[in-house]
Design a protein around this nucleic acid. Structure first.
Length: 733
RNA sequence: GGGCGAUUAGCUCAGUUGGUUAGAGCGUUUGCUUUACACGCAAAAUGUCGGGGGUUCGAGUCCCUCAUCGCCCACCA
């Protein structure tokens, strides 16, 4: 309602009027008796509700007999101006031109022949109420029937109805109608049915269709360039399938009823001259002499909204903002307002600015309750975001929603889902707290130090991979995938593995400690930047607390990270970290299998797969001890000496076999069973891999990389098989 | 009537152009007061990917069909 936007609305109205697109006319429209206003088609919500199907006798004017008509709206009979039968319907067509008596009135109405009457439906006779039914209105036009509006604007019957009905609410009148007809023996039967009834979106009451004088905007010409914009790909929808909905509506677009009988809104810039009947439309009131009266109707709210992409930037002035920001890149909105808003903005942009208003339209999920119902005030099933924020935090709410929102599908939401984000925020907070407890931030946290360990290179590769992945997902508007990538990066890679592994160099002190802290800082700051769009508050706070961002500045102005660190790394070093972590996982599994508390220090034995692995693993002995909470780890090229120390639960990994000596506590039978099950699985996989590779068509048709992967996979399986067999025979002694 | 979508672990859902043994969170079970975090740590179990058919060397992924659920549009005397 700002002055600038009012100017834009007036200008557009006048332009479309002069072009002949906006016109005033008597047409069948949707009427809301609660709001006492006209509505557009889009504001009518259809609901299936129980109702009744009434069969009434309309007596013939001459002679005996009656025509039986069926209706769901008995009270509209006072607007009946004919009964129609199909011209070819031999049961009735000889009656065409004759009359029936309209019950409860003294009117005679004609029997007309019209194809609208379907002989196969109901009785084949249909009452025609041109004032209250769109189809009947068309029939009325064809037969020159009178249009009688029997209703006041609040849904009560008006004085065109019999005296005892005047002023009655339409539903009260319906009952009275049926009662009176029953008394007169004119009710043939009444059936219970479920039928679709149009409700006013805002008023919540059944709408009336009636003929009224309203302002309309002709849409078909406006739609053409807007259809083309999406067809040609100048505007893209994400997900793309919504274009179908868009095209279907646009290609069948109806004139838009834009006038509303409300007191709040942009007033229509039209004036009537009561002396000579002239109509004046203009941005300014008429200067010509005479008695002018401005139209009291206001415009549908979307008449200002469809101008939004340019009206908010000063249009019709060609402001600097407009030149810079129009068209914009992305519109983010819900698919439920494709017709109301998106389609109309595209039409308005093409018409008034000569070009599309935006290039991408991202349709969000619609949040529903646990039962799948849309959130609504009347159902009271909408959580108050402020309550949710108070309980879980604003970032937790935001992150959780992004994390759980699938592309293009609705979300079944409940507050508990915010625990994902709350726990994640807490995890991040604690990771930073841990770093802070080690002392102040490194001098150069923007660059990596020299001489990275394999764990550090592993972490940086993970970070690089995450950056690339996140960029790719964001490009494709796959926000949930980006959120998942970040969640895994922070929780699994950074906290579970990297921070735990870095405790070793940190405890060593000296240069190792300095380097470790510098890498932690480097990685953490990048993580905070990547997370900032998803969790703006906590990342800003942490960036300041950590000392990454100066007082008075914001993380949002720091450069987005580039994925360019790991390219120069020796892949073998990352593989060493991976192999080590795998052995740690297996060692922990063995510990857990025997219910040994994590806190108890243990000895492990690792038989390296070969000399290379042996040399590499020896460098990681202290790291393995820390991660496995081991007292001692023997790394050897020899198998664990079960003859000397008793059998030990063991399992192979890529870099070697790890054993947990238990000095007689081993449950040999259980170990054998476990290993034999593994052997069976391995043999199954080997058989399937071999079968596949023996299939000429696979080798011939599959991409070379897939075949190569299958070959190396088979080789790995063979190695695991051998090692597992060795373990089994060792156990058997 | 037309269109769109969904159906994957007990629950809520990921799974991008078909490619090894289908994943996550919650829940469940076991063990943990391991000095960042119990809103946590370490581990474990659970799936004939709605049914049927087809294409393919290979299908959760593509095609057809059926079933159930949801949404949109149109119609409904």
């Amino acid at each position: 309602m700002d002055e600038g936007l009012s100017d834009a609305v007036r200008k557009v109205f006048v332009a479309l009027y002069k072009k002949g697109y906006i016109y005033r006319g008597q047409r069948m429209i949707n009427w809301c008796p609660a709001a006492k206003s006209a509505l557009s088609d889009e504001e009518v919500i259809y609901r299936d509700v129980p109702g009744k199907f009434y069969y009434f006798r309309y007596p013939l004017a001459e002679g005996e007999g009656a025509l039986i008509v069926a209706t769901t709206r008995p009270e509209t009979m006072f607007g009946d101006t004919a009964v129609a039968v199909h011209p070819d319907d031999e049961r009735y067509n000889k009656l065409i031109g004759k009359f029936v008596k309209l019950p409860l009135t003294d009117r005679l109405i004609p029997i007309v022949g019209d194809i609208h009457a379907d002989p196969t439906k109901g009785t084949g006779c249909v009452k025609i109420t041109p004032g209250h039914d769109p189809n009947d209105f068309e029939v009325g036009k064809r037969h020159n029937l009178e249009v009688i509006n029997i209703m006041n604007n609040d849904g009560t019957l008006n004085d065109l109805c019999p005296a005892d009905f005047v002023g009655l609410d339409r539903f009260v009148a319906r009952d009275l109608c049926v009662r009176k007809l029953t008394e007169q023996g004119l009710v043939e039967k009444i059936e219970d049915i479920t039928h679709s009834v149009g409700y006013s979106e805002r008023g919540g009451v059944p709408i009336e269709t009636l003929v009224s004088s309203q302002w309309f905007c002709k849409m078909d010409e406006l739609a053409k360039p807007a259809i083309e914009a999406v067809k040609s790909g100048k505007i893209k929808f994400y997900p793309e399938r919504w274009t179908k909905t868009y095209f279907h509506w646009m290609e069948n677009i109806q004139d838009w009823c834009i006038s509303r009988q409300l007191w709040w809104g942009h007033r229509i810039p039209a004036w009537y001259n009561d002396e000579n009947g002239e109509v004046y439309v203009g941005e300014e009131p008429p200067a010509a002499p005479g008695k002018w009266r401005q139209e009291e109707d206001v415009l549908d709210t979307w008449v200002s909204s469809w101008l939004w992409p340019f009206s908010i930037m000063g249009w019709p002035e060609q402001t600097g903002e407009l030149k810079k920001f129009y068209p914009t890149n992305d519109l983010v909105t819900g698919p439920d307002i494709i017709f109301f808003w998106v389609a109309r903005m595209i039409m308005a942009g093409c018409e008034f600015e000569g070009t599309i208003p935006f290039r991408n339209v991202y349709f969000t999920s619609i949040i529903r309750d646990e039962k799948g119902r849309k959130l609504s005030k009347s159902l009271g099933n909408s959580p108050d975001p402020l309550d949710v924020i108070a309980e879980y935090g604003a970032d937790a709410l935001r992150f959780s929603i992004v994390y759980i929102a699938p592309v293009g599908m609705d979300i079944r939401y409940n507050n508990e889902k915010c625990e994902i984000g709350r726990n994640f925020a807490n995890k991040l907070w604690n990771a930073c707290r841990f770093r802070q407890m080690q002392g102040g931030v490194s001098a150069d946290f923007e660059h990596l130090p020299e001489g990275l360990s394999c764990d550090e290179k592993w972490m940086i590769s993970k970070l690089d991979a995450a950056i690339s992945g996140i960029e790719e997902e964001l490009e494709k508007f796959r926000f949930h995938a980006a959120a998942h990538a970040l969640y895994d990066l922070v929780w699994s890679d950074f906290c579970d593995w990297f921070v735990e592994a870095e405790k070793l160099p940190m405890r060593s002190g000296g240069a190792d400690r300095e380097r470790a802290l510098a890498v932690l800082d480097y990685a953490l700051f990048r993580i905070l930047k990547l997370l900032h769009p998803f969790m703006p508050f906590i990342t800003e706070e942490l960036a300041h607390r950590m000392g990454f961002v100066e007082e008075g500045k914001s993380i949002m102005y720091t450069a987005w990270p580039e994925a360019d660190d790991a390219a120069s790394f020796d892949p073998a070093e990352c593989a060493l970290a991976d192999g080590k972590f795998e052995l740690v996982r297996i060692g922990r599994f063995l510990r857990s299998s025997y219910n040994i508390p994590d806190g108890k220090k243990l000895d492990f034995h690792i038989k390296a797969a070969g000399k290379t692995e042996f040399d590499a693993l020896v460098t990681q002995r202290e790291s393995l001890k820390l991660l496995l909470n081991a007292e001692n780890i023997e790394i050897s090229l020899e198998a664990f000496d079960s003859a000397a120390h008793g059998a030990a639960p063991s399992q192979p990994g890529a870099m070697g076999v790890i054993s947990l000596p238990l000095a007689g506590l081993i449950d040999v039978a259980a170990e054998l069973a476990r290993l034999e099950k593994q052997l069976k699985d391995i043999n199954g996989w080997i058989a399937s891999a071999k079968g596949k590779l023996a299939n000429e068509r696979f080798v011939k048709n599959a991409p070379p990389q897939v075949v190569a992967d299958a070959r190396s996979g088979l080789a790995d399986l063979e190695v695991r098989k051998t090692r597992t067999e060795e373990l089994i025979s060792a156990l058997k002694g």
